[in-house]
Design a protein around this nucleic acid. Structure first.
Lengths: 203, 203
DNA sequence: GGGATCATGTAACAGGTTACATGATTCA
DNA sequence: TGAATCATGTAACCTGTTACATGATCCC
């Protein structure tokens, strides 16, 4: 946030947004506490298979979310049990979650983790916006694929020494791998789109 | 290395092995120094496009490699320039590099970085072992693909409440994405294999 | 009595990013 | 004169992993 435009590199933070999403899923009457949220990130659980979150990091993230004003904590003493700290989403936390859920991820490598987390919560919280998320992500990946094809097309055989020729051949392999992975993700998005529940009235 | 078999989680460390590889590429007469090695990891360079390494981390890794006994350093004073610390591979460093270059990566997500680094150095240093690396990696990924297909096949529609049904549908999407990405990598390996220079005598 | 579960964390460590420190010399 | 290059690093900070600390109660 320096005046000359150097933003402090807002990292995606999928884990913290996943916590916001879980709190948005829990009913207002019984807000979540750490131990409870941790169970959702264990193996076998749908979210836990995508994003593993150990207790240490989970409590750390909850503290950061509290400092950011996105969640509010309340200490709830229990008879014959250690006291719970329960968390609920604040208005600004809900706004941040909604913003994050509407944004596609920028890199192909983020599809496997961050995009899958978005997908989970868009399906559960705002299924009517699922087509928008899928289409937006498809657009981003299509742009990547075009750029990769450009880069492959402009790779020039140098005809020079053997080392330079080998380097260009290697760069082509690198670009072809990225293109193949990007295209696989696009094809998957298309299949997910056609199998998504359509809430559009004129369907 | 504890006696009960709990190995200390030998992380892949692609950056450090890339440094070993670069030192293996430099002629014995003029061993590399940090600043020189750093240029190979800048943007536009074939390696730098796969693995970015800032000077800070580079010198840090060189120190670790020295402590491990994989490289040996010598200080070389220069007239009218800051002194250089030049590094050369030790015998154990070369053995470690060879071991690492022969091993496929275990996870699909490591293809994009670690496997590409291995590929670079196998092509440059021991091209006759390239078919072995490609075939070994293909085997690993095929095993993953089989396992993913099994998992998809054993996903059971619960017929229970809507939430459980949505969870299973989500888990299917997750597995299908992983399968698509793994298959794309396998197809790419197959193309790389058929276009690789064959040193086999009966070709 | 002993382990599992509930519930919250801390500590140590590994890896990575960005920025800065230092101090000479060559080039525009 | 001032910037870029050569050459080496340090410092601060963030993310993430593993292990451990604490202390109660429930269940066998």
């Amino acid at each position: 946030m320096t005046p000359d435009g150097k933003a402090p590199a807002r990292t995606p933070m999928p884990a913290e947004h996943a916590l916001l999403g879980l709190l948005a899923l829990t009913p207002e009457a019984q807000p979540g506490h750490g131990y409870d949220l941790a169970r959702r990130f264990a193996g076998g659980q749908p979210l836990g298979d995508v994003l593993r979150l150990e207790p240490g990091m989970l409590y750390h993230h909850l503290k950061k979310l509290e400092r950011a004003g996105w969640v509010a904590a309340a200490t709830e003493p229990q008879p014959a049990r250690p006291a719970r700290r329960t968390f609920r989403l604040t208005a600004s936390g809900r706004a941040e979650l909604t913003r994050w859920l509407g944004e596609p991820v920028t890199h192909t490598r983020e599809i496997r983790l961050e995009f899958l987390v978005k997908l989970y919560f868009v399906r559960a919280l705002i299924p009517e916006r699922l087509p928008h998320l899928l289409a937006g992500q498809r657009d981003v990946l299509s742009g990547h694929a075009d750029s990769l094809m450009d880069q492959i097309a402009t790779l020039t055989e140098p005809e020079a020494d053997a080392a330079a020729i080998a380097d260009v051949a290697y760069q082509r392999l690198v670009l072809e791998l990225r293109l193949a992975q990007t295209r696989a993700a696009i094809a998957w998005l298309d299949r997910a789109t056609s199998s998504a529940p359509i809430d559009d009235p004129d369907a």
